[in-house]
């Protein structure tokens, strides 16, 4: 496909993805997923922090730790949203709407379709992130006197804004890996994304630094793009030098994309051999 064609396909994918991801016909559902659930997840982490830190005797670094966990929880919305929506895509298209086979027999590339869906959910995630950042910081500073040590003037906006597309690219690739696994299997349709978000939440320094984990496990955290994404976000919000984290993020993103592309090609051919593209669920 020529470059224009690819761009058009991605744009169409985004448009279609946006239509599907943001169910405007049902504002209740839409607001649930876009606003209510993300805010609740951020508040949950905040409350654990408040209760845990009140019960303990730590004083000095309280606000720094709060900043760490709170921003972790807020920006974790990006990988969680994207990964969940792409992992669920197979089930949705194959079993629920039965359109997967029809997508596959068209000449357009499935990758662009997935990228489109991923970008659409990244746009949604941005709304969730902004809203929960705002609502969360207001709640915790008003009710629990926990203020974020962020000042608008010292934020490194350039780094912050460039880390997001980079992170999104890595998370979409991750989603593609899950998509490919679901394409050749049936049993993991519901659980794969939850396993993944659970592992990412535990290993990538969302609510505590990964180096607290026992050694071989902590190393996995160091490789994951989520870890570096959150590091860059935190540094840039505080106005610290983020060059090193940024380099790591770039590296792990490229690595993830490469793995995803190879993996997906492999799984697609397996799917055609096994005939799983249009087989209905087995329960």
């Amino acid at each position: 496909m020529d470059r224009e064609g690819v761009i058009r396909a991605v744009v169409q994918g985004v448009w279609l993805g946006w239509k599907v991801e943001s169910n405007w016909t049902n504002p209740f559902v839409f607001l649930t997923y876009l606003i209510a659930k993300p805010i609740a997840s951020v508040i949950l982490v905040g409350l654990v922090f408040v209760i845990g830190s009140t019960a303990s005797s730590i004083q000095g670094s309280r606000e720094d730790l709060f900043f760490y966990t709170f921003t972790g929880a807020v920006f974790f919305i990006y990988p969680a949203t994207i990964v969940i929506s792409l992992a669920y895509l197979v089930h949705e298209d194959r079993a629920k709407y039965e359109v997967l086979k029809h997508v596959y027999i068209t000449p357009s590339s499935i990758q662009t379709y997935i990228i489109g869906r991923g970008v659409a959910s990244a746009i949604n995630a941005s709304v969730s992130v902004a809203v929960s950042l705002l609502v969360g910081s207001i709640i915790f500073s008003n009710y629990f006197a926990l203020n974020l040590p962020i000042s608008a003037s010292s934020v490194d906006y350039l780094t912050l804004l460039s880390s997001i597309p980079l992170g999104v690219a890595a998370f979409i690739s991750l989603g593609m890996v899950l998509y490919s696994i679901n394409l050749v299997t049936f049993k993991l349709q519901y659980s794969l994304s939850e396993y993944t978000t659970g592992i990412l939440f535990l290993l990538s320094g969302v609510v505590f630094p990964p180096k607290m984990l026992p050694y071989p496990i902590s190393f996995i955290g160091e490789v994951l793009p989520t870890t570096h994404f959150l590091n860059v976000v935190r540094s840039s919000l505080l106005g610290y030098n983020a060059h090193e984290s940024m380099a790591y993020l770039l590296l792990s993103t490229i690595l993830t994309i490469a793995v995803a592309l190879i993996f997906m090609r492999r799984m697609e051919s397996i799917a055609r051999v096994k005939g799983t593209i249009d087989r209905k669920a087995e329960y």
Partner: peptide, 27 residues
């Protein structure tokens, strides 16, 4: 695999919160 998922997945976030309490030096 349903049972495995339903035991493992909650354990993952459960571990994360335990580490968070550890970080906070909670009782």
């Amino acid at each position: 695999h349903w049972s495995i998922a339903e035991v493992t997945i909650p354990l993952l976030s459960l571990c994360a919160y335990i580490y968070m309490y550890t970080m906070l030096d909670a009782p």
